[in-house]
Amino acid sequence: MPTDSIMLTEFGKILIFMILSVVFVAIGLFAAKLIRPSRPTKEKSTIYECGEETVGSPYVKFNIRFYVVALIFIIFDVEVVLLFPWALAYKNFGVPGFLVGISFLIILVLGMAYEWRKGDLEWDRPRPNIPNLINDKAGFDK
């Protein structure tokens, strides 16, 4: 096998896709920069937010519930990662192989049931953090 064809594994193809996507965007932006006229006005260079005047800081405080959901997500993310090799191989072992994965899943479903029972998955206490827009706007009208 010549050295160049060794590199073109499945990941080599992914790498080519990555490079192509970067090049594609770069060519588009560069061509647009060459062609378009550049006449910036104050109005044009303001931040675009769906046609509205932007209010407040872009760094909005998130609801704390998102964090809990993200924490739980990571655990199940790891679970999915561990199930991938099992899912590819369990057919070679028949029922015992299947049971190995099922007991893995049952143990984790216990955790899921615990979360459910304790109400960590509920979204029942929404406390929207509405920023004080009136005070923020004063600085923007200058």
């Binding site: 655990i75 072992f93 192989g97 007991s103 955790g111 615990y114």
Partner: peptide
Amino acid sequence: LIQNYSLVFEILAVVLLIALIGAA
């Protein structure tokens, strides 16, 4: 994982369970 390390596999599930409950 299934042939030689199935116990490790199940212990991983327990570790994940503990992490899940602890985080929550």
